[in-house]
């Protein structure tokens, strides 16, 4: 195994030189009351508290209501394809690891069509902060079932009720190797902003799943529904460094039959990132490395005599 090496260019997270305005003036397209507004507010608060330098931030999204997130921001952004935000974000990060790269999208995007990328980004421990707005439905396509929809739920595409088990995002991410795994609720933007702040400061792959109600197409999992079930892990005895305990908390969704839904930081650990192992990044971000020289080109050519 290659040795971990120091990444020369440390992520320029804190202390931007000037006061930054993180909004672009573009109005979000969400329905009034949509949970995604809370997530946007949490993200702005986290940026402000960290004093993040907006020109070093890229928000990458997939497709879905929640994936419109980059537009109201004055940072860089890529609004990519349904389910593909993680590969795009990973490419950006690998090409220039001095950037702060954030992924934002929906549950369909992340746990459905893009699920393979979630699994592999987690095991790579690439330094991307991934925020999933989990409304347990497909918002943009007008209310079909989703990978996180509970069994029995009736939707346009499951008029007789969902029969599949929902994905357990926390357990999935922990077991796949994510090094920062948290869940928030957009009804509590203060709390979720702290989770986002933690994820942005964390060195490695973070998954932050946020209960973000769809007020238009999900009348089952409403703000009230979530509010009566969530409780904060900070308020109980929980040690995020303890993987077994974290998994136990993750399984509480199922063991409590979705009557108790913990939010907060489930798990955090320190493991070298993909970038720290990658040999080609020893000399700094790829985007800042010098062009290949004639001598280097001759060297690879001469291998073929």
């Amino acid at each position: 195994m290659p040795e971990k090496h120091e990444i020369n260019e440390k992520v320029a997270l804190h202390g931007a030189q000037q006061k930054q305005v993180y909004t672009s003036g573009v109005k979000p397209i969400w329905c009034p009351g949509c949970g995604d507004f809370g997530v946007q507010a949490g993200l702005i608060k986290a940026f402000n508290e960290l004093g993040i330098d907006k020109s070093n931030v890229v928000i990458v999204s997939g497709i879905g209501c929640s994936s419109a997130m980059p537009h109201p921001f004055s940072t860089y952004g890529i609004h990519s394809l349904h389910g593909r935000l993680l590969p795009v974000a990973s490419g950006l990060k690998l090409a220039n690891h001095s950037l702060t790269v954030i992924g934002t999208g929906g549950d369909g995007d992340g746990y459905g069509i893009g699920s393979a990328h979630l699994l592999h980004s987690a095991r790579r421990n690439i330094d991307v902060t991934y925020i999933i707005m989990n409304n347990e439905t497909y918002g943009l396509t007008t209310g079909q079932t989703s990978p996180t929809a509970l069994q029995g739920r009736k939707t346009k595409s499951t008029p007789f009720g969902v029969t599949e088990m929902p994905v357990n995002p926390m357990a999935l991410a922990i077991s796949a190797g994510a090094t920062y795994v948290a869940r928030g609720f957009s009804g509590d933007p203060m709390h979720l902003s702290q989770l986002i702040k933690g994820g942005l400061s964390h060195h490695g792959f973070s998954l932050i799943d946020i209960f973000s109600p769809c007020v238009t197409f999900n009348h089952d999992n409403t703000y009230d529904w979530f509010r009566s079930r969530v409780y904060k892990l900070e308020d109980v005895k929980h040690d995020p460094a303890n993987m077994a305990m974290a998994l136990e908390k993750a399984m509480e969704d199922i063991t409590s039959n979705y009557s108790k839904l913990p939010i907060g930081l489930f798990y955090q650990t320190d493991r070298p990132t993909y970038e720290e192992y990658e040999l080609s990044l020893k000399d700094g971000p790829l985007a800042k490395q010098k062009p290949h020289t004639r001598e280097q080109i001759m060297e690879v050519l001469e291998e073929n005599r």
Binding site: G91, L92, A95, A116, L119, L286
Partner: peptide, 21 residues
């Protein structure tokens, strides 16, 4: 990568960051 979908989208990400990909 995990599949060719990831391969092309990673290359697009890297190119967006200014690296020839």
């Amino acid at each position: 990568t995990e599949d060719e979908i990831a391969a092309i989208n990673m290359a697009i990400g890297a190119s967006s960051a200014g690296v020839r990909a």
